[in-house]
Design a protein around this nucleic acid. Structure first.
Lengths: 187, 187
DNA sequence: CTTTAAACTAAACGATTGTTTAGTTATTAA
DNA sequence: TTAATAACTAAACAATCGTTTAGTTTAAAG
């Protein structure tokens, strides 16, 4: 018995996500969010509580977006080769729309590393733990590797992936390709 | 014929540098700088012009601090082994005082990657160019490597160093050691 | 001493931050 | 058609941002 919402929450969150992705949390203001999401502050607050709420929803939306990449990764049957392809897939979404924004999770991981935002940290850790588990799984398909080797290589690849995401913001495609290729020569 | 400064500019910049190192540029306020530097806003402005000026001086101070590491790196005579040692030396300063702050230059590089601050970008690029030159120099001591291999490996190591600095903020010593060891396995 | 000017304190500046609120519009159930 | 209420607009909120400024203290030069 009242007015209908004139926007779709998923749609405006997708726009907010892009803004956070490009600028980070702190460098994105409510004013910018208003403009980019196309709705005014009242609507933002009534839908998502506060700026932090918009950010959390944006992170969830991001995870949904990269789910297909993770899914493909998980379903692969080529062991290490799957990891490599996953690396290439991961950076490809960073280059959409001519932007070089890196990975929103990694960017957030870095920006929030010195804060005490437990909610965000929890989300980050679950993301990273999941990735590590998948990498270990893939490495284990090579039966010749002992447990210690698998652990070492998993640590190595996880850091390489983290560094790759950071580098995707500032380095050229050529440099990144060189990096990925040589990274997997060490396994 | 007037009053003397009651602080030493180099000393207060060292303190400012630590604050920027820990929190980044945007997340460090003048209020925090006042407190940490132990002098008030007027003094900060009269000595360094503005917040940006404090930051630029902090970057210079940081470069001075890491100069000894670069010097050792340059003077080494063991080729690739020197690069590896340089990697270890670089992360060691990040763990001083129990803090995990990464590398100020790399942090800045990431934070400013989407801005148009030419002065900062210039400083970053000169730092990176210098590092790349040194790495290439070290790689060339192995005469069996052709030019293309050297270029590829230099790109690889530069990104690895960048990623390492980013990871140093959030990863454990064990993970980082695994990463460095495997990074140099096949060069 | 007195003069002079740089270094200090502390308060205020306008702009912007995230957030709230009072008042208006629009839609639906009665 | 009317009453009810959610969704909207737009202005204001207190707090903080980087920066400036008016007034006081201090110390060296004349």
């Amino acid at each position: 018995m009242a007015r209908k919402k004139q926007y779709i929450e998923e749609e405006v969150i997708a726009k907010a996500m892009n803004l956070f992705w490009r600028n980070g949390y702190e460098n994105t203001s409510m004013q910018m969010l208003e403009k980019e999401m196309g709705i005014n502050k009242f609507s933002i607050y009534s839908s998502f509580g506060n700026k932090h709420g918009v950010f959390v929803e944006s992170l969830k939306a991001y995870k949904k977006n990269v789910h297909s990449i993770f899914d493909k990764f998980q379903k692969g049957t080529n062991g290490i080769e799957d990891i490599k392809e996953f690396f290439y897939d991961s950076i490809s979404i960073s280059y959409q729309e001519g932007n070089e924004k890196g990975c929103l999770v990694t960017n957030t991981y870095n920006e929030f590393s010195e804060t005490e935002d437990e909610l965000i940290k929890e989300q980050m850790n679950s993301f990273m733990d999941n990735l590590k588990k998948l990498i270990i799984e893939k490495l284990k398909t090579d039966k010749t590797k002992d447990t210690e080797t698998v652990t070492k290589q998993a640590n190595y690849l996880l850091l390489a992936k983290h560094g790759l995401a950071a580098a995707a913001r500032v380095n050229s495609t050529k440099e990144i390709e060189d990096y990925i290729e040589l990274t997997f020569k060490n396994l």
